[in-house]
Computed example of a mutant assay.
Amino acid sequence: MSTQSAQDSRRLEPIGFQERLTATQAILRHIATQFSPAVLASSLAAEDMVLTDLILKDALSIGIFSLETGRLHQETLAMLDKIKQHYGYEVALFRPQNDAVDRYVEQYGLNGFYDSVEARKACCHVRKVEPLGRALQGKQAWITGQRRAQSTTRSELAVQEHDAAHGLEKFNPLADWSEDDVWYYLQQFQVPYNGLHDKGYPSIGCEPCTRAIQPGEDIRAGRWWWENPESKECGLHLVDGKLIRIKQVG
Rank of each mutant, 00 (worst) to 15 (best):
R10I: 12
R10V: 08
L12H: 12
G16V: 01
R20S: 10
L21K: 05
T22Y: 02
T22V: 04
A23V: 04
T24Y: 12
T24N: 05
Q25L: 15
A26R: 14
I27A: 11
R29K: 15
R29P: 02
Q34D: 15
S36A: 15
L51G: 02
L51F: 13
K57H: 14
D58P: 06
L60Y: 10
I62L: 03
G63M: 09
I64R: 01
R71T: 14
H73G: 00
T76I: 00
I83F: 10
K84I: 05
Y87R: 07
G88D: 13
G88A: 08
G88V: 06
E90H: 12
V91I: 15
R95E: 06
A100G: 03
R103C: 03
Y104S: 00
Y108Q: 08
N111R: 10
N111F: 15
Y114F: 14
S116L: 08
S116D: 12
R120G: 02
K121T: 02
K128E: 00
E130S: 13
L136S: 00
K139R: 09
A141P: 04
R147T: 01
A149M: 13
R154L: 06
L157E: 02
A164G: 02
G167N: 07
L168R: 01
E169P: 00
N172V: 10
N172M: 03
L174I: 14
A175Q: 09
W177Y: 11
S178F: 10
S178R: 06
D180S: 15
D180T: 13
W183M: 04
W183R: 08
L186Q: 07
F189K: 12
V191P: 00
Y201T: 06
G205H: 00
C206S: 11
T210F: 01
I213Q: 02
Q214S: 12
P215N: 13
D218T: 03
D218Y: 08
I219P: 02
R220S: 03
R223K: 04
W224D: 02
W226M: 05
N228T: 08
E230D: 12
K232G: 08
K242G: 04
K247V: 09
V249F: 09
G250Q: 06
